[in-house]
Design a protein around this nucleic acid. Structure first.
Lengths: 338, 338
DNA sequence: TTGAAAGCGCTAACAT
DNA sequence: ATGTTAGCGCTTTCAA
C-alpha cells in the first residue's frame, strides 16, 4: 500500500496542454472557457483522478467550506440516551448538507478540549462556529465573534455580552406555563417541579415558567433540581416524595428526567395520573413509550438546528449581516400522565 | 464586527525581532532555541494572539491532524434511538481526543453524500478514514486505501477485496450461538429469529449463528428479517406469530428490534418468558428498562470504537504498518426475558 | 479566451 | 543556534 502521489493542477494542465490557470477555471466552473478546452481539461481530470487539494485552496481563498458545531459536553453525554443532541445535529446537518458544507462536530466537555476547540476555530479550520447546549456564561462565542468568525448559538447565551451573538432558541417559558396551567386547571394544588440544571438557559427559563404560573395561581412552590438525566430525575422524585408525600403533580423539565420520575413514583406506589400527575418537556419518543405515555411540552429542536444552520450560512456569505435572535414556539402535548 | 486580520508568523517574527523560521521552531516546540529568544517569541505570540494557519501548515506537512469517521447512513438514522452509533462514536472520540486529533464525523446516507465524502477524503482533508455500519460491498474503503489513505473499518467488510483493509469487529457468531443454545437448553423447541438486514455483516453473521445452533440441535428454522429499528422488530414479530402461533422463543438480532417484538407479543397476549422467551443483541440500556428486562448478548461497541481508533493512529504514524483484523468477544447477559 | 506570475502562510533543508 | 530560501498546490490579478 504505497502512498501514490496525488495529481496536482500542474499535472492536469500538462496533460491537457493548457495552463494551470485554465485548469483552475474549469475545475471551479468558470464560464469563460472554450468548450473544447473545457472538455479536454475535464478528460485529463478524469484520467488522472484529480481532486483539488483543500489546504492549498483554503490558503488562498480563506474558505474551508466546513462549519463547526460545538457541544460543550463530553462525548458520553452527547451520545447518551438524551435525544436533545441527536435532534440538534440532525437539523444542522440537514441544512448544511443541502448547502454542500461539511459539518465538523466537536465535543468540548473538558477544559482541555474546550481549549482545543478554541484553537481549532482560530486556526481557520472552519468558516463558522455554532454552539449548542451551553453552560454558564461561556466566553468562547463572544471571543470568536470578536475575531470576526461567524458565530451562532442555539439557546440564548447566559453571558451578559450574549447580545452580541445571534441565537436561536425555543419558547421554554411559554411551554412550561401552558403545562403548569394545565395542572392547575385540572385541580392540582400541590404542584412540585424537577428543574433542569441552573447553569443552562433551558434549566433557568423552564423554572421561571413554573414559578410564574404558581405565583399567578397563588399556589406554593416545591422545587428540586436534576441534571436532565434519567437517574437525576428518579432521585429528584424520591426527594420530592419524601419532602411532601401529599404532592399531587409534578412538572419535570425534561422527558428523560420524567421517565426516571415515573419509575420513582411507581416504586413508591403512586398511580399516575390518579395520585400524581406528571408532565415532561421535550416530546421525545420516550414520552410515547413510557408507562403511562407522558404529557409533555413539544419543542422543535430539529427546527432549531435547521434555523441555526441557515443563519450561519447567511453569516458566512455575508459577515456584515446583523442577525436577529429567533425564538421558536413550543406546544403542550396531552397524553395519559396528566 | 469586522474581520480583524489574523496575525501571521511574519508578524510575530517582526515583533520578536527574529526570523520566521525561529518563530516556527518555537511554535512547534523545537528544543534548539535559546531560552531568551523562546520567551521573546512566546510573548509576541501572546500579545498578538497568534494561532498558526492550519491550511498553510497542512500544505507543507501534508498532515491535517484530523481523522474522519464515515457512517454510510442518514443523519436521522445515526441520531435515532439506535444506540449503536453513539457507542462507536464515543469509543472513537475518547481515543482520538487522547491523541489530540480532531474527529470529523461524516454521514453518507445518500449517493450524493457518499460522493462528497469520497472527494473530501481525497482532497486531503483528513489523515485517515474510519468506516462503521457499512452496507453491502462498499468499494470506498478499498479505493481510499489504494490511494494510500489509512483506512480502518469497524465490522468485517463484505467486499471480496475486503481483506485488504484492516478491521475491528465483535464475535457476532459466538454471542448468538450462546444465546440460542441457552434457549435450546431451556427446553424451547420452536425458536424463531428476527434477523438483521442481510446487506450488513452484523445481520449476516448473527443469522449464521442462529442457523448453526438450530442445525446442530436438529430444530427447525423460522427466519424473518428487520432493519434493526424498533418498528421493524414489532412488525417482524407479528409476522412470526401469524406464521407460527405456537412458537416458544425468538432470538432478535438487536435490542431495539427486541423491544418492538416485546410490544407485539404483549399485544398478541403472549407472556414473556412464560409463553415466549426473547433474547436480544447489544445490551443497550433499553434492555434493562424494557418489560421484562431483556436477556441479551453484550457486545463491546465502545471498545470496538476505541480499538479502531487506536489502529488508525498507528497507521497514520506509519502507513507501511500491516494491521491484522481484531475480533472482540461477546457475552450472553441473562435477565428475565429468557 | 488564455497564460504568466505573484502570492496565500507555513515548514524544512541548507547555510552560516 | 539562527537565518535564508525554496517550495507545498492553488487562485487570481494582470497582460496579451
Amino acid at each position: 500500500m504505497v502512498t501514490r502521489e496525488r495529481p496536482t493542477l500542474e499535472a492536469v494542465a500538462r496533460r491537457a496542454g493548457v495552463s494551470r490557470a485554465t485548469v483552475s477555471r474549469v475545475v471551479n466552473g468558470s464560464t469563460t472557457v472554450a468548450a473544447s478546452i473545457r472538455d479536454a481539461v475535464n478528460q485529463a481530470v478524469e484520467e488522472l483522478g484529480y481532486v483539488p487539494n483543500q489546504a492549498a485552496r483554503s490558503l488562498v481563498t480563506q474558505r474551508t467550506e466546513s462549519i463547526a458545531l460545538i457541544l460543550p459536553e463530553t462525548a458520553s453525554r452527547v451520545f447518551s440516551d438524551d435525544m436533545f443532541f441527536p435532534a440538534v445535529i440532525r437539523g444542522v446537518s440537514t441544512e448544511l448538507e443541502a448547502a454542500d458544507k461539511q459539518l465538523v462536530l466537536m465535543m468540548a466537555g473538558s477544559a482541555a478540549s474546550h481549549d482545543r476547540v478554541e484553537r481549532y476555530a482560530m486556526a481557520g479550520h472552519v468558516d463558522g462556529v455554532m454552539f449548542a447546549s451551553m453552560h454558564g456564561a461561556d466566553p468562547l462565542p463572544g471571543k470568536l465573534a470578536r475575531l470576526g468568525i461567524p458565530v451562532v448559538c442555539s439557546g440564548r447565551p447566559m453571558s451578559p455580552a450574549g447580545n452580541t451573538v445571534p441565537y436561536v432558541d425555543v419558547d421554554h417559558f411559554g411551554g412550561v406555563a401552558a403545562a403548569v396551567r394545565h395542572l392547575v386547571g385540572a385541580g392540582r394544588r400541590r404542584i412540585a417541579t424537577i428543574a433542569g440544571p441552573q447553569d443552562m438557559i433551558a434549566g433557568v427559563d423552564r423554572l421561571a415558567g413554573y414559578r410564574a404560573v404558581l405565583t399567578e395561581a397563588g399556589l406554593p412552590e416545591h422545587v428540586t433540581t436534576g441534571d436532565f438525566t434519567r437517574e437525576s430525575g428518579e432521585q429528584a422524585m424520591q426527594r420530592l416524595l419524601t419532602e411532601d408525600p401529599e404532592l399531587d403533580a409534578v412538572f419535570v423539565a425534561s422527558d428523560l428526567m420524567a421517565h426516571g420520575a415515573l419509575q420513582a413514583l411507581r416504586e413508591r406506589g403512586r398511580r399516575v395520573p390518579l395520585d400524581v400527575a406528571v408532565i415532561g418537556f421535550d416530546d421525545f419518543e420516550i414520552a410515547r413509550y413510557s408507562d403511562p405515555p407522558l404529557t409533555t411540552v413539544r419543542q422543535p429542536i430539529v427546527d432549531m438546528g435547521r434555523t441555526m444552520a441557515k443563519l450561519m450560512l447567511t453569516l458566512v456569505d455575508d459577515p456584515t449581516e446583523v442577525a436577529a435572535p429567533v425564538v421558536l414556539p413550543t406546544e403542550l402535548v396531552l397524553r395519559d400522565s396528566a
